[in-house]
Design a protein around this nucleic acid. Structure first.
Lengths: 181, 181, 181, 181
DNA sequence: TATGAATGAGACTTCATTCAT
DNA sequence: AATGAATGAAGTCTCATTCAT
């Protein structure tokens, strides 16, 4: 079956938002890219904010799922964290454009989006904290891991365009360094 | 002496940009806050971009100076890095609103601003790299330090409103953890 | 038997027009109320104007019939006028929503509708004139009766929601006052 | 001094509203008539509703003043009512276009405007009631006078374009007929 | 007949920028 | 330098109407 019109709009919006940013994107850019009429947009979305929200929600949901999955995953800490990281990076790598939007646009849009961003961030931190609870300086280590993870996404994956393998190996090296050994 | 009109405009712009973000700020907000007429703005700035640029340049200059200062500063690595960090945090702490703009707005505006942002980031990384050149895994350690530093600024200083002392002590702990001991 | 689709549309349109007015009513409101699809509307009506026209025509026809009936009705003037009034009020009372549309919406829509409105008004006036032709100041009395009748409809029946009996008795009192006794 | 821009807009709006009605008037019609740019409209008025409101308020104020003036005016009832009517008609005659808007547009726009319309109507009725309080059937007579007055405005003055003298003499005749003699 | 997604013209509104004073 | 009214391009959004199924 063909892509539904709504899907076409979502995909076009992802493309355009990631190219020009939220504020520099006009609804006319999105419909132009999708090849539908201006009015069609408003059948599916109340506003530009709404389609942006749906897109952001996609990343948030994916990340949430991974957090949930590994929160209850029983294994050696170091292993769990590495697997968790690998999976997060995999999703973000696969949906780079959406990841770009999430990491580089969400904060600026303000309003509820800022909250969503910090919320996800907090949940990742809580995840690390829980896993590291038996380690000394768990708080500090959690912060370092999350800071480095974000750095990897923003600079190596999105801006630097490094390979997935590189990202993951960097992360694993960092885990080893921080957890000792 | 009184603030010059241009200074008034810059200060108002800093306030408003940091409250509402670049795109949600109207020139009329800036002049309203400054208490001058709409037209006066264009005597001092060619456009909204230009005043934003001047503000961004203020942080960039400060950071650049600190980088330059410590690049040629000869002392034990760990000490240099800690002093460097302390000074960076001090400036950002003092000019929180400008820091907010730099960390949360610059990337979204796009165009040359994105370049400026990554440029500063790169120079800090080069600084760390140079200082850590004798350490094993210097590349990784530099990345971790910079990622954690940014995390401290964004989450603890700007979003979380922690004290300056807290920020600095966290940073120093991280340096010790990462450089060993 | 079931209401035909066209009847459903007419009835829904009457409801919605009388609630929101012609201009504030969307075709989507009408079809929504009727429970049919948007496109169905255009099978039965060329445009929003056309369904409005059909509705207006319903009142106009009813009033016309009553005028015709009493124009050739031979009896004492006072009696004829009272009976005529009673019957007009009865129809309007029964179809309050349509009456509302006729009295409060038709003039604003402009175009041919304004003409229709003044046309009906003129015919009622002619009716009164004819019936009162033997009375002194027949012209003035006709005008007073028609002005008062309209007032009764607009303020007491439609806006004020008075009973049918009240309306009629007011009208009869006025007839007596104006024709003497 | 020249007409201020706001005055130009008000005058153009009066012209256009009275020609095409509220809903068929576009802001672009008003600014076109006034010879100013589209954006200029929004310096002075928040919306089309707002300029309409200001115009409606002009009639309401004038009528209110006349009501106030004659409410406390002591003289023979018949004389007071005739003078009151004459003055009301004079104002409406002088500002026919605004009167047209008030009598033929206000009801349709809905919302607060409907309330304003019925409010004025009620105050005129109260005025008549007070003046006629010593007369038998004062309620009925008040209603008749107001119904006829409105008829005169709508059909003779606005639609029929009769002279001011004609309107006033009709009204005075009606007063005499209704109050006796 | 009936559907309802799609269209696109056209309205409203905002706001960076200009310019005469 | 300073003003602030005016501009108009550009964007958002609505909705009557069409049309393929």
């Amino acid at each position: 079956m063909n892509q539904s019109t709504k899907e076409k709009l979502i995909n076009s919006a992802i493309k355009v938002f990631s190219e020009k940013g939220f504020f520099n994107t006009k609804v006319s850019d999105i419909v132009g890219e999708a090849g539908v009429a201006q009015g069609t947009f408003y059948i599916y979305f109340k506003s530009k904010e709404e389609i942006f929200f749906e897109i952001v929600q996609m990343v948030v949901d994916q990340i949430s799922n991974i957090i949930d999955k590994y929160t209850t995953y029983e294994d050696e800490t170091r292993r769990v964290i590495k697997l968790f990281g690998r999976e997060i990076f995999k999703v973000l790598y696969e949906y780079k454009e959406i990841a770009y939007i999430f990491f580089f646009q969400v904060i600026c849009v303000g309003g509820e989006f800022q909250r969503i961003y910090f919320d996800v961030s907090q949940r990742i931190k809580d995840f690390y904290l829980k896993k590291l609870s038996k380690y000394p300086k768990s708080q500090l280590k959690a912060e370092i891991l999350i800071g480095f993870g974000k750095r990897l996404v923003e600079f190596d994956m999105l801006a630097g365009n490094r390979t997935f393998t590189y990202i993951v190996s960097q992360f694993e090296d960092a885990v080893d360094l921080i957890l000792g050994e």
